[in-house]
């Protein structure tokens, strides 16, 4: 009935050959065809970022791309973030900082953060917030997410990090607000 096509792509390091309808988004292909349900659907309009995957080094909303467009691309999904049994530093820092509550936005945030740190291992808080602005979280107010990404960058660079799970008030002095007011974001 449907005009299915064969797509050859690479997902999480493995070559993948799959069959899909041209109208299926990459998100549908990941979730319904390949059973990689870690990428989440929140809006289907590119406004929430829950479906973010990394394609050829860039963050992309998999809901706004057709599955057939994945031909020849290198795709990393949340299922490919950890190296085997050991978590990626970002995953570890999200856990240590209690950066997730309901967890539905978490895969998308992790993929956006990975795309950022892969390109810019030492981002400022402004750069972190800008890079995560395409991901909506309704539970946390973003505070603990930004801290986790900051911590992960520090850990990956071998720098120290604040004591586990604490939020020292002297660092929480409204710097982000000042930065936003000055338009230092872009």
């Amino acid at each position: 009935m449907a005009n299915k096509v064969i797509v050859e792509t690479n997902i999480n390091g493995d070559p993948v050959e799959l069959l899909c309808e041209p109208r299926q988004s990459l998100l549908e292909v990941l979730r319904d065809v390949l059973e990689l349900t870690g990428s989440k659907e929140g809006c289907l309009t590119g406004d929430c970022g829950a479906c973010t995957v990394v394609i050829d080094g860039r963050p992309v909303c998999s809901c706004l791309m057709l599955g057939v467009e994945a031909t020849g691309k290198k795709i990393t999904t949340i299922e490919g973030l950890a190296a085997g049994a050991s978590l990626h530093v970002l995953q570890q820092k999200f856990l240590e900082n209690a950066s997730l509550q309901c967890g539905i936005c978490t895969p998308g945030f992790l993929m956006s953060a990975k795309a950022l740190l892969d390109r810019n291992p030492n981002p400022t808080e402004a750069e972190i917030r800008y890079s995560l602005a395409g991901n909506l979280c309704r539970c946390t107010g973003y505070d603990k997410i930004v801290r986790a990404v900051t911590d992960a960058a520090a850990a990956m660079a071998g720098r120290g990090r604040p004591a586990h799970g604490t939020v020292p008030s002297e660092t929480a002095s409204g710097m982000a607000g000042e930065m936003l007011a000055k338009g230092e974001v872009k």
Partner: peptide, 14 residues
């Protein structure tokens, strides 16, 4: 700047 204002980085990638 205008191109860099369109949506998020995810959107700008496409």
């Amino acid at each position: 700047e205008a191109a860099h204002l369109i949506g998020s980085l995810q959107i700008q990638s496409r």
